[in-house]
């Protein structure tokens, strides 16, 4: 048992490197879900922009309409980039998820720090047979990973894979 843990010097060259990691991208179908989500929010904004002036009986200035049009144009153009930038990789001992077009953020969680994990399916995702998988740590919500836009089968398989890893580590 005493030999199970060693703490020799480690040289940077020998450690597996994150920069050369092959990330996987999400299912193509997930782009549809993202667009659908944005369309719904867009419709809600349009309804609000039409309804509020009627209810309050006075008109918004033209700049409000123009700026919201502008914002939505940007949001829709960025959807494709945003989709492409979301990527993940499961490695032997940890997983990495990276996302963000302007503010790129990548999170690494070692399997031995995962508290629990869950597979989730939203309304639109169900139509396209997609699912998301969440990994929770004790480090607070900002350090949890949620990978959306996996096929249901993949999500279940990854869940199985990581659960096995955790179980083995616990022994």
């Amino acid at each position: 048992m005493k030999n199970a843990f060693s703490n020799n010097n480690v040289f940077l060259e020998n450690i597996p490197q994150t920069e050369n990691v092959d990330y996987s991208t999400l299912e193509k179908k997930y782009l549809n879900v993202m667009v659908l989500n944005r369309v719904i929010w867009c419709v809600i904004t349009i309804i609000a922009l039409i309804a509020i002036p009627i209810l309050r009986d006075d008109n918004f200035s033209i700049y409000i309409y123009l700026s919201s049009l502008f914002i939505w144009l940007i949001i829709f153009t960025f959807t494709g980039f945003s989709f492409k930038k979301k990527k993940y990789v499961f490695r032997e001992h940890d997983l990495i998820y990276s996302s963000g077009v302007v503010f790129t953020k990548s999170i690494l969680i070692p399997y031995n720090r995962i508290q629990h994990l869950a597979v989730h399916q939203g309304v639109f995702s169900r139509i396209y047979n997609l699912a998301s998988i969440q990994f929770y740590t004790a480090g607070g919500s900002s350090s949890d990973i949620s990978i959306k836009g996996l096929s249901k089968e993949d999500a279940d398989r990854w869940k199985e894979f990581v659960s096995e890893k955790i179980k083995k580590l616990k022994q």
Binding site: V10, I15, Q17, E19, H93, D94, Y111, A138
Partner: peptide, 19 residues
């Protein structure tokens, strides 16, 4: 990137409990 690799490696090989 190198630091992340090193730290992740150290966490992953560690048998110690975080709590």
């Amino acid at each position: 990137n190198k630091l992340v690799d090193t730290l992740a490696y150290k966490v992953e090989v560690s048998k110690k409990n975080w709590m």
